[in-house]
Simulated assay, not measured.
Amino acid sequence: MHKEEFKALSAKIADGSATDEEIVRFNAYYDALLASGGEVPAWPNEAALLEGIRRKTAPGRVTRFSWPKVAAAAAVVLAISAGIWMFVRNNAPSIVQARPERPLIQPGGNSAFLTLADGRRISLDDVQPGDVASQGNIRITKTDNGEVVYEARPAAEGSDGKPVWNELTTPRGGQFRLLLPDGTKVWLNAASALRFPAAFAGNERKVELSGEGYFEVAPDKSKPFIVQSPAQQVKVLGTHFNIQAYADEPLAKTSLLEGRVEVTAGNSSATLAPGQQSSLNAQTGELRSGPADVAAAAAWKNGFFVFNDTYLSDVIRQLSRWYDVKADYTNLPRIRYTGTIPRNVPLDKALTMLEITGNVQFDINQNTIHVK
């Protein structure tokens, strides 16, 4: 990162216009400088301002993003920014032994299938920008930036008067953006599915999610927006939130960035304020809520893996979905990572970052990640 870029980021954070991704990059670069013994770029009369901004974005000072320090000896600090990464582990460098060459596995990208009410299944990878399909009075288009847009006129209903439902699914190694007919924006992560009506009729806007999705809900007080996932229901009026509800994750997590949501699971419910997260135990049905690093939970849509004291098993699950590989979870060391990895790097590079910071070694055999 050049001095001018660092300066520009600090100015955006100071005036409140910085995105979560930009705050992540600022913190990561600052920590990397300190970890390497370097000094923060000092230009006239601005060093004090930078430190003041740093305090604003430090743990306990902001709800949008926190960069927690490692609390246990087994934890690892990983800081990656603009292609430069530094590490700290018990104040001593790790030693990684020579390993066999790993196959080149590229990161995932925009990929999805759209299934229409009449059974047509459209590969959105192959569709050029422009018209995709139509259903009654609904026009479906794909924009130049790869987003699928639903344009609704009157409510779309089938011949029997029932809503017309569509489904957007992403494969492992895929993600996609969708603009619903009410103006709600949805980002769908890898190995996920969203089932939704082609147009919202009645007194509610209800969709069904499996996997992970980030929602920016268009406000409409007369029609609450409801996200139904296998074990819970999230009800909102207009807000920004992330839901992770993968079948292979032990917890279903709802993270709120803006607004207010109500999470219901069985006989339990929780109302979240910005900066809070609910966690539903899929086995016991227990629903808990509390403060969380919600910006880190939604960082995937901005092109980053952000780990916040995250166990290696959770890290590997996220990598395996994005790079469309399997993972061997036997004999995993109980180490934790805190830091950021760009989602656009090849798998080998991501694993190398984890190897150096965690003093572990990875191998890929038959499209499966193995930990040594």
Rank of each mutant, 00 (worst) to 15 (best):
E4Q: 08
F6K: 12
L9K: 12
I13V: 10
G16R: 08
G16M: 10
V24D: 03
A28H: 13
L34E: 13
A35E: 14
G38I: 04
P44G: 00
P44F: 12
G52E: 15
R55Q: 13
K56Q: 11
A58M: 10
A58I: 08
G60Q: 03
G60C: 05
G60V: 00
R64D: 04
R64V: 04
S66I: 10
A72Y: 06
A72M: 05
M86G: 07
N90V: 00
A92W: 02
S94F: 01
S94I: 05
V96M: 12
P100N: 09
P107L: 08
A117K: 13
R120P: 00
L124I: 07
D125F: 02
G130M: 10
S134Q: 15
T141A: 02
K142M: 03
V148I: 14
R153W: 06
P154V: 11
E157I: 14
K162P: 01
T169A: 15
R177I: 03
L179H: 09
D182S: 08
A199C: 06
F200T: 01
G202V: 06
N203H: 14
R205Q: 08
E208K: 03
E208G: 00
G213P: 06
P219Q: 11
D220P: 04
K223E: 05
K223M: 04
P224C: 02
I226S: 13
I226W: 14
V227A: 10
H240D: 11
I243G: 03
L257T: 08
V263L: 06
A265Y: 07
A265C: 01
G266H: 03
N267A: 10
S268H: 11
S269A: 08
T271Q: 10
L272E: 14
P274D: 05
Q276Y: 02
Q276H: 10
E286R: 10
R288W: 01
S289R: 06
A296N: 04
A299G: 06
T310H: 01
R317C: 03
Q318R: 09
L319S: 08
R321P: 07
Y323L: 01
K326R: 14
T330Q: 15
P346L: 01
L347F: 12
L351A: 09
T352A: 12
M353W: 09
V360C: 07
I364E: 12
N367G: 07
I369K: 06
